[in-house]
């Protein structure tokens, strides 16, 4: 119990986080570009067409990473909410503010690329299927989180309300994951699971893993960059507020 807060508090120091970010950012960016370049080229030009879906299967190489990132970012948001509500971790609120829009983008792209796949394959852009609907709910949860943070005059109240919403909304994650098993859905079941062997050919699995890894590293780099910028902006606001206070004191004297 003691080790966790100690580790958390070490990175609660913004200076420590900025140092870590400076070291990690070049590696994350280079990894993202490398894996994404390889994965996209492989998926678009070298991976075989599917016997059932034909060439449209290539949409999977961008759709699946977006679905993975939409859920992972929300998990990050929920973890930040716990850190903020329980331990009052100073960076957790800032991290939640920066993760929200990135996760919302991933969820929106997951829905749009899914529709672009669904139209030629299912003959419709949208069905009220359990998997699609639960991802749409996730997108709305992201929008609610973004709106709630800015809904109060006092930022701390907005952050607290948004953290509670993020925690309550985390119940949607297992629903998304197991929707294809719990209900009879039009959406296909998972092709990759932690316990079983993948049900897809290795020639398709490799480009999918590469694009997923590339997008994940890229999103990590974007979140680190946004969080570093937010720390700088917060420090600037503090300095400006202090100088305004000093000026008021000087005038009063």
């Amino acid at each position: 119990m003691r080790a966790t807060p100690n580790l958390l508090h070490r990175y609660a120091n913004p200076g420590q986080f900025l140092r870590l970010s400076r070291v990690l950012l070049p590696w994350l960016t280079a990894g993202a570009l490398l894996f994404l370049g390889a994965g996209v080229a492989w998926g678009l030009f070298f991976a075989p067409a599917d016997w059932q879906q034909g060439e449209t299967v290539r949409i999977m190489y961008v759709h699946v990473p977006m679905a993975w990132l939409a859920s992972s970012c929300y998990l990050g948001l929920a973890v930040c909410s716990v850190l903020s509500l329980v331990w009052r971790h100073p960076l957790a609120d800032l991290a939640a503010i920066e993760i929200g829009p990135v996760g919302a983008c991933a969820a929106a792209l997951c829905l749009v690329t899914g529709s672009l796949w669904g139209e030629p394959m299912w003959g419709t852009w949208w069905v009220w299927d359990a998997r699609l609907t639960s991802v749409l709910v996730l997108f709305f949860l992201y929008l609610g989180h973004i709106a709630l943070i800015r809904a109060f005059d006092e930022p701390a109240r907005g952050q607290k309300a948004a953290a509670v919403l993020a925690l309550a909304g985390a119940v949607d994650l297992p629903i998304i994951k197991f929707s294809v098993q719990w209900w009879n859905t039009l959406h296909q079941p998972d092709s990759i699971t932690l316990t079983g062997a993948p049900t897809m050919s290795l020639t398709m699995l490799w480009p999918l893993l590469l694009t997923t890894l590339g997008f994940t590293l890229g999103v990590a780099a974007v979140i680190f960059t946004r969080l570093s910028a937010a720390i700088h902006e917060s420090r600037t606001r503090q300095l400006l507020a202090r100088s305004r206070l000093d000026r008021t004191d000087t005038h009063a004297a």
């Binding site: 067409a49 034909g54 983008c105 672009l116 139209e119 780099a221 960059t225």
Partner: peptide
């Protein structure tokens, strides 16, 4: 390939949005 418009739109949107997010963060 068949349905190339759908494939092109998916890649353009995903890569375009990712690039926009990365550049604006930088």
């Amino acid at each position: 390939p068949a349905h190339w418009q759908y494939i092109a739109a998916s890649y353009a949107l995903t890569l375009g949005c990712s690039a926009f997010l990365a550049i604006s963060a930088m």
